[in-house]
Design a binder for these strands. Structure first.
Lengths: 331, 331
DNA sequence: GTGAAAGCGCTAACAC
DNA sequence: GTGTTAGCGCTTTCAC
């Protein structure tokens, strides 16, 4: 039925070992035999069985990527960064969405380990002790991307979320001289915590007290922005500016304002976070914290290849630079 | 080092076969032995090796998905549909982007076949004879999603792109009584051809002649919309409406118009295609052809499971319904 | 430069 | 119910 390395060996009058050498580009083969083997491979339509190879060699050239949600524009961009570098190094990717559900995350890690992936790239919400235990007892390297491990145990690629949020909030305070609102996700993830902390630090440094009414948290969705704006408009004094933890929600804030007759940035300034492609596809274009999304994936994957190949790693926890991009949603 | 089924068997004083039965939920095991085996599995931290299992059973419970670009919002949504159903049926996914490059597509198909995937879900640009040849000589089932095979040889899940484009164009003609413009991608894909054909058919039926100046094609990107609008504005008579083959480009058209002082829909009406999430995240909200993106992926994956399990398939080429959603970018 | 042979860790008859 | 055994298709020493 299916043609195996044995069939090729027989037809070409060589041993399996020689065919294996040819297939794997081993130089210790006489050019003439190589040619002969290649010819019968072609003729028989032989296709190496990567599963058998994986069993024998204990390498699958496949890595596992666990991602919160592939349909999320931020993560799909990050995934593309992973993929491009993986392709460059000849790895395939088993990709799975976890919805940041801890049990699902743990289950996925185990499934991927069973499938004998050569490494795991993990993007998630919160890194718990159980995660760390899983990772440490894993036989293959693990790298975190856009995911913060408070213990700094696991290699990772991130930006400084706390600092970025601090800077954005600080900017808003300096511009308006008033207390900025905060809109974001209520999910209990370390990135959310870091962003919130940055916001609070900026307030504190300016001698401002946080105001419950000025903090609105919901889902990661656009609709959270709409809802937040409706909430703020019911207040006696609405905020003069708002720092939003995710661009998609920020778009909701802008439209929520516009739909209620406010002008952005004249009546209310909006500062986003991530710089997803949509940020330049709104009017007014969104001022936001630029995070090198694609690069986080790419650098994470590159880091993982280093661990898989036992190369030296200078920096276990990579912090990529971020910056603020001022567009038209702030004055 | 790693604990194998043999270690478990030895520790539990049973044979490998029994351990295998327990692991695979085979009912022919006495409850007491099952309990014993389960206990030593737990104790030893045994994790079944899926690669070995795949070699022995010739099933990997992994499918391959070839997609034009995972960072594209349309395809990432489709991918989520695939994934959810795959998870439901206990399959993992090897996901790769092809950029609709034919050579890369063929190469990916081969890589996935080498990895012994149990089936392939293919999303691409053009289905050529070479593709069909590859698919037919493949040992595993293949399903196309959002990808048109003119010969109807390969099972597929689509909507009727030609009809949908026809309807949208027709609507624009009836509203404005003028020749609508066409903006889209110049990529030579069958979906693009179908959409263009639908546009042309609507013109013909209304006794209108296509006008070169009213057809602008570029990349799939937002910027194509901006460029198209700039092109139209240079014309002596600019179009009263435009049918855009992709929502993301349509957003560009809207903003290209607005950035040049035109109002949508008053000065120019815009009709999109796909109903990506962004369509409701612009102002004015985009009127568009609603395509059940997530469902195309989900139904495609479900269809693939049927082929993989040798179930009966009533409909080899599934055509899902579409509809027009009228929002604020048309009058 | 090439071949022989022993696994890799598991499943799947088949026997008992 | 449970054990024995022969592969699955390949890589990898180790000889020669």
């Amino acid at each position: 039925m299916t043609v195996t390395i044995y069939d090729v060996a027989r037809e070409a009058n060589v041993s399996m070992a020689t065919v294996s050498r040819v297939v794997n580009g081993n130089p210790n083969v006489k050019p003439t035999t190589r040619k002969k083997v290649l010819a019968t491979i072609e003729q028989l339509g032989y296709r190496p069985n990567a599963v058998a190879r994986g069993l024998a060699s204990k390498k699958t050239t496949t890595i596992g990527a666990i991602i919160p949600d592939i349909s999320n524009i931020f993560f799909s961009e990050l995934a593309r960064g992973i993929e491009d570098i993986a392709t460059m190094y000849k790895y395939n990717i088993i990709l799975s969405s976890s919805d940041q559900n801890k049990d699902k995350e743990i289950e996925l890690i185990n499934t991927m380990l069973e499938k004998q992936v050569d490494g795991i790239l993990f993007m998630g919400g919160n890194i718990t002790e159980e995660h760390i235990h899983q990772f440490q007892t894993s036989s293959v390297p693990v790298v975190l991307a856009s995911t913060y491990d408070p213990t700094d145990t696991i290699p990772s690629v991130n930006i400084d979320y706390e600092l970025a949020a601090y800077e954005a909030t600080k900017t808003l305070i300096e511009k308006t001289n008033q207390l900025p609102a905060l809109v974001g996700s209520q999910a209990d993830t370390s990135v959310n915590t870091l962003k919130t902390n940055g916001y609070l630090r900026a307030l504190k440094e300016s001698g401002m007290e946080p105001n419950e009414d000025y903090i609105y948290k919901g889902s990661y969705a656009y609709s959270t922005g709409i809802e937040a704006m409706e909430h703020f408009l019911k207040l006696e004094n609405r905020p003069a500016s708002v720092f939003v933890m995710y661009d998609e929600i920020a778009l909701g804030v802008i439209h929520g304002a516009q739909d209620n007759g406010l002008n952005v940035p004249e009546d209310i300034e909006v500062f986003g976070f991530d710089n997803i492609r949509l940020a330049s596809m709104v009017r007014p274009k969104l001022t936001t914290v630029v995070q090198p999304t694609y690069d986080i994936g790419a650098v994470g994957m590159r880091l993982l290849t280093k661990y898989m190949n036992d190369e030296d790693v200078e920096e276990k926890n990579v912090v990529l630079p971020h910056r603020m991009e001022f567009r038209d949603s702030t004055k």
